[in-house]
Design a protein around this nucleic acid. Structure first.
Lengths: 338, 338
DNA sequence: CACGCAACTGTAACCGGTTACACGCGGCGC
DNA sequence: GCGCCGCGTGTAACCGGTTACAGTTGCGTG
């Protein structure tokens, strides 16, 4: 048989078997200090034979580095979550780091507990504050951290933060719709306390205002980023008189709900009502009609966050404290017909 | 100010400040052994004042428990990934565990390296073998692990495995389409080496065979689980003569691609071509027409996996070695009209 | 030939917790 | 008065690595 690896064996036993000291084993395995070729050879043989695997936890304790980072996220659904993790994981892997994720945090107190539990387990943190009320998250002093989202001041002055250009993207949609001649534009917002949702709404409102158009209160519908809420919102918007000539949903999932509702009502898109979303999820271009949206490189956001964190960990220089990931308007047939 | 927590302080310093021994601190914090109320009081005060936070890494070393589990996943996209992680995370949180994820593994050798790096960092593993060739993943002896996917024999005899009832779900779709009178049914498969994809194809083929229908080779199209491949496959299928009267895509993303292609070709769904998918992603019901699919409780899969792992970790009893998460057919207008 | 230095290796003290064992002490039964 | 017991606490040996420091060689030089 081939017991290739045997976790239950320690460095001292390997040392005994190879008739050298533990220091030598350590040095061979880490490529430090000068080692006689014969010794190295013998050690490696014994290591292979015994299937010795170093205990990372023990190593972390003495080196004071865990090679892993903690990722604290709010309750996230769908594409956004997986893309973000993908990006982070990719960045981590590239630098030999591991990722400890913890999602679904709604309560700051819960996060506080988590932070404590993470002490000694991770070298740094990527934190996404879910809601505005979470502005209160305090990172213990001396712990490198990067914040994600639209709440720059979250972690205190000294932590970098990355954000998506929600306001810019929403503004671009507004411009686009205005350029097409729309003046009454319905808006389906995201969850009340969600900062992305808020930034999108404000960006939209501001862009309208800049062109002298006001967002009428009866055209502003509450949503929760899920399909169903978009569906419901569109039904309500369609009933407003005069009916809006366009609808902008704060994310694609809700836009899809809107699309479904408009179809049910027999309203042509974009003929009678133009429609736009946000996120540009892969499916957006395959809808009927293909959905105008705002493309955000979420994986890149994750990867950048990781890069920032690592550059902080490894004593990197002083990069800008805030960084914004662009959001680009993607025009498709749901607004411009064919 | 309020330096609520201070990671840079050790238990010995706390002991000195509270004028007790380190053992006492440890006992108070862990609720072990008898402690005089006055002492406990004093210790807690000092702990609070100094903002002492125990170092989990050190604790892990001496207790030989890390309270975290490793999750090893293949390269995953979209909804499936996030739902799975959500389920796992939820199960972990409920038991005070942490989750160390690592995604995007295509190569068994890469996984091997990862396994070594995880030694001493996690108490157990949840492993999803991406492809058939990964059947070779060897878990070191003595490490509790749970496998996910359709390759029961993966980790050796002693590891439990959870699977989605891919074959059953695909069979149900086949039955459904046969019942509707379809005999020429196109199939869009997933990535070649993907075990879910394979099980779906085989389940479909088997169900057809059971009713005396053969899956014609020219109706079997290769896909990769992404929208675009579904689009391309549908175009090719539509060109086959005689044209299939129904298409079954191995996942919803590809089904959406198909839908888009059929629309481009001006083929009515389900009038001229019926369409079904697999996964029942949230969007499925909002498509035009709403998509017949197979619902899989992915989050539950993750949660069950975690539960199984933990029950193994905590010396739980002998539960069945294999468990299957059901997959239920959801019939919508893409197959039955209205 | 003594000395310095480089190459190599070993000893033991860390890292920051947990916990087996020992100890002091007051109360109890006899 | 003595022995025992249990409570509350401290001492020190772990857990499994890393690494500063201290040798021990062997070789080149003055």
């Amino acid at each position: 048989m081939d017991p290739k690896s045997n976790p239950s064996i320690s460095i001292r036993e390997v040392a005994a078997a190879a008739r050298v000291s533990v220091a030598t084993i350590s040095r061979v395995l880490n490529g430090k200090g000068p080692i006689h070729p014969d010794t190295r050879q013998r050690v490696l043989e014994v290591v292979a034979e015994l299937g010795y695997v170093p205990h990372s936890g023990a190593r972390s304790l003495s080196t004071r580095r865990t090679s892993s980072v903690g990722v604290i996220l709010p309750d996230l659904y769908g594409e956004f979550f997986s893309e973000l993790i993908r990006g982070i994981d990719q960045g981590a892997k590239a630098s030999g780091y591991h990722v400890l994720v913890s999602g679904s945090h709604s309560d700051p107190a819960e996060v506080e507990v988590l932070l404590r539990a993470l002490h000694g387990r991770v070298d740094g943190l990527i934190v996404m504050g879910p809601t505005r009320s979470t502005g209160a998250i305090r990172i213990p002093p001396g712990v490198p951290a990067v914040f994600l989202g639209d709440l720059p001041a979250q972690g205190g002055v000294d932590h970098p933060s990355l954000r998506i250009d929600n306001a810019g993207g929403a503004g671009a949609v507004a411009e686009h719709l205005l350029d097409l001649g729309h003046r009454r534009i319905g808006f389906v917002s995201g969850p009340a306390e969600n900062s992305d949702a808020e930034a999108r709404l404000e960006g939209f409102r501001a862009a309208l205002a800049a062109r002298g158009v006001e967002l009428a209160p009866e055209l502003l519908m509450a949503g929760d980023f899920r399909e169903e809420s978009g569906h419901a919102a569109a039904l309500r918007l369609a009933a407003v008189t005069p009916r809006p000539s366009a609808i902008f949903a704060a994310n694609d999932a809700m836009a899809i709900g809107c699309l479904s509702a408009l179809r049910d009502l027999g309203l042509a898109v974009p003929g009678e009502v133009a429609l736009a979303g946000f996120d540009d999820i892969p499916i957006a271009r395959y809808l009927a009609p293909p959905l105008t949206s705002v493309r955000v490189a979420i994986a890149e956001l994750g990867e950048r966050a990781m890069a920032r964190l690592l550059s902080g960990l490894e004593g990197g220089g002083a990069e800008p404290l805030e960084e914004t990931i662009p959001a680009a308007l993607v025009v498709r047939a749901s607004t411009v017909g064919l």
